[in-house]
Amino acid sequence: MSVLVYTESEKGKFKKSALEVASYASALARQMGTEAVALAVNAENTAVLGQHGIAKVLQLTDARLESFNPRALATALQQAAESNRAKVIVVSSSADARFMAPLLAGKLKAGYAPNVVALPDSTEPLVVKRTVFSNKGFAHTQVDGSLAIIGLSNNAYGLEESTGAATASPFAPQLPDSDFRAKVTATDKATDKISIADADIVVSGGRGLKGPENWGMIEELAQVLGAATACSKPVSDMGWRPHSEHVGQTGRPVASNLYIAIGISGAIQHLAGVNASKVKLVINNDPEAPFFKAADYGVVGDAFQVVPELIEKLKQFKAENA
């Protein structure tokens, strides 16, 4: 028996979310009295997984998997699950994992619980807590069958260190040609920027910023904090910012540690997509802006004065705390 976890990497290096799902899977394995096995694809330094509780790493090396292929990955996970008699498969909430997991669940005809935010309420039967209704509620969901798939929400569990060491062994699943029917022909990814999904801090601007020419201070604030930049829907609909920055119910979901909303009113559809963030700071000149009700910290003031001053003070703070 085992808990199998898919640990994602990029250019050979494990993503932060991989270490989080590894931490979660090993805690779950302890809860179930078994061990956690990780599948790593084209990754180096698998020892780091041992530091997050993984007992065994299946190392899959295949040049065809350099660009993400959900179908081949689902096949690999299926075979890994069989050979390790997995009872649960844990995946992250990255765009790639959300692409792959339903294919895997369909293939295995297994129950899949996404947006899980905690270790199971119970393991026999398996009952997990997950967010539903765009963070406006929680469901406690029983996953039936001999194999369950859990999708862990980003940042919901955090990292756990352990002193363990992982043994790594090569893993060579049979990947049929039919898994390679789709071909990635172009990737357009800003390599110098932190993505919203991976960011600890997200700095987001709304219509209150008046126009695209005013985004310099948003970019600068993000840079000082090592944050990703985001925006409200109308800002992307008007073309002030790219669609990839649109967050909310119909945009990208945000579950960062700190979400800073500047000149955003806090419409219900915006909140639905960002409420999973742990701490929210709102800067808005209207004390009645609905966002203040959902915020932890607030500054009622003009963004054009507050943000530049905040940048200066943060620079000082960073210099003193470096």
């Binding site: 899949y112 963070n135 406006k136 469901a139 406690h140 969901t141 029983q142 910290y297």
Partner: peptide, 18 residues
Amino acid sequence: GTQDQRFDKPAPKGAVKL
């Protein structure tokens, strides 16, 4: 493959610190 057994709402949020 799954059954939702119980639903809850998130705990009410504390007041914002201005």
